[in-house]
């Protein structure tokens, strides 16, 4: 079964993150906790991050949502772990440009995140993909 245009959205790597989410759960002594939801659709995320000397040493998420929102959260936590706050913010900026369908700097290692490019072509789903990133930005903003 194949829907050509849908395959751009539901890439194998996205489905893999949805089925086997990385960093699922909560950090007990997480220094940063953010709860965010998408009031229009009921998606919600509980994000905990441990920040030491300006570096995100651990990140975990919990929540409910569609494949795109949960896969995006999984990829996001994977991408920021071990990175400093500035780097995480840069990633977030690149991600938001990607969602807008704009060109973005290619000097950062995006790894799995690039699979989410197709979301830009499904305007109704962009909010799903950006939920966890907004939560991360909000959490790290207070750590800066």
């Amino acid at each position: 079964m194949s829907f050509n245009n849908l395959d751009q959205l539901y890439r194998q790597v996205i489905m893999d993150h949805y089925k086997n989410p990385r960093n699922k759960g909560a950090i007990e002594d997480g220094s940063v906790t953010v709860d965010m939801n998408n009031p229009t659709c009921g998606d919600r995320i509980h994000l905990t991050m441990k920040v030491e000397d300006g570096v995100v040493t651990d990140a975990k998420f919990d929540g409910e949502g569609c494949s795109i929102s949960m896969a995006s959260a999984s990829m996001m936590t994977q991408a920021i772990k071990g990175k400093d706050i500035e780097h995480a913010m840069k990633l977030s900026h690149v991600f938001s440009e990607m969602m807008l369908g704009n060109d973005y700097p290619d000097n950062l290692d995006l790894d799995d995140i690039e699979a989410l490019q197709g979301v830009a072509k499904f305007p109704a789903r962009i909010k799903c993909a950006t939920l966890s990133w907004k939560a991360m930005e909000k959490g790290l903003q207070s750590e800066k």
Partner: peptide
């Protein structure tokens, strides 16, 4: 299947 995903596939149809 999450309802968003259902709605996206239906929209493609």
């Amino acid at each position: 299947v999450h309802p968003h995903d259902v709605a996206t596939v239906l929209d493609a149809e």
